[in-house]
Write a protein that binds this DNA or RNA. Structure first.
Lengths: 198, 198
DNA sequence: TATAACTGACTGACTGGTCAGTTTAGAATC
DNA sequence: GATTCTAAACTGACCAGTCAGTCAGTTATA
């Protein structure tokens, strides 16, 4: 028997939460292990009790940030509802997700930049986008089957929708005054659907 | 009078070229001043003769990377040709630009991530995107005037096209096997135009 | 021969990671 | 229920390495 109750999950979570905050505010590189230690309420030594290295913290955090989204998408892929319903759920949830993710965007962009140098990070992000595109493709295919859309290449259309969402976020990030992100994603996709409609 | 012919422009260019290469390959942060010195064929001391700091090199490089594009866009904004001609030029040039920029993408994404922490970098990137959107808006407005397009909001349409291009690059970066970028940008915009067409 | 251009050894601040030692929650024993 | 024991949990001073930036001295050229 363990002579103490196991606090390791709680501690890991404490550390990752502190890292997420610090990385977002100061950037992954500028953040010191001592910063994470301080704001997690633990000592530097404890960080190394739970994680092998700063890199291990970065990877664990990548998982923490993206995993819920990937889970959600996988669940929606399996969901037996109709394309229309799924598309509705996807759009509503997607808009909300972006708003929820906003304060972590600096961290996410650090991940994007790191991905060019760290295979595991690139693989993780690829995995995320592929899930996203697969889901969109199903939605569109179902739209075709129901006679709502007309296109001979649902994969292309999925990529277009995915591009619109990613690109809108990107443009908005660097010009937030002139772009209302949620409204634009909606109207952009509307514009596209005009092109898809039979 | 200068006792030597002025080589400072040439040296600065040498340094920035070496920095561009090194930053792209290893990342801005991992690149050492000594790496830049070595591959520029100068000494570390000389780097500091021409630039105040590593940060100064980063900023000068940002300018070197984006300025030609901004120049091109400004010129095209002033160009008296018709919307159709401009759109054609823009599309062709845009595809080529992406191909030309490919090897510098890791550097560009480092800039994007840095933008969250450095006001000057964010301003520069904003400036770039705003020029881009302004140009697109003009092209679309001219398309409306000529009766080719039908929309009551050319700004929205410009943002949509901009999003498609940026987003396609993004998706392609993390899933290059399943996305043919040039072909997709074309077909994506085509799809959108179907929605715009009167 | 004045000075712009250049060099590279050096410095000092910094930081990821280590480790010898301490604390503490609970188990075992009486 | 007090005492002892154990290992997990924790600490922070320290170390070895790193690197941006400096500067005293050298070289090349007009």
């Amino acid at each position: 028997m363990a002579p103490k109750s196991d606090v390791s999950e709680e501690r890991k979570s404490q550390i990752l939460e502190a890292a997420k905050q610090a990385f977002s505010e100061q950037g992954i590189h500028k953040t010191r292990m001592s910063d994470i230690a301080e704001s997690s309420g633990l000592s530097k030594g404890s960080l190394y009790w739970y994680f092998d290295s700063k890199d291990a913290i970065i990877l664990a955090l990548l998982d923490k940030v993206f995993e819920p989204e990937i889970q959600e998408m996988e669940a929606l892929l399996e969901d037996p509802r109709s394309a229309e319903e799924k598309l509705l759920i996807y759009a509503e949830r997607g808009g909300q997700d972006i708003i929820n993710m906003l304060r972590w965007m600096p961290l996410i962009y650090d991940f994007f930049a790191l991905a060019f140098r760290q295979k595991k990070i690139k693989e993780y992000i690829s995995h995320y986008y592929k899930k996203n595109l697969a889901l969109l493709e199903i939605l569109i295919q179902q739209g075709i089957d129901s006679g709502e859309f007309k296109t001979n290449n649902p994969q292309d259309a999925a990529i277009t929708i995915g591009s619109i969402i990613e690109g809108t976020v990107m443009l908005w990030m660097y010009d937030p005054e002139s772009i209302d992100i949620v409204q634009h994603i909606k109207s952009n996709i509307q514009l596209l659907l005009n092109g898809l409609r039979s």
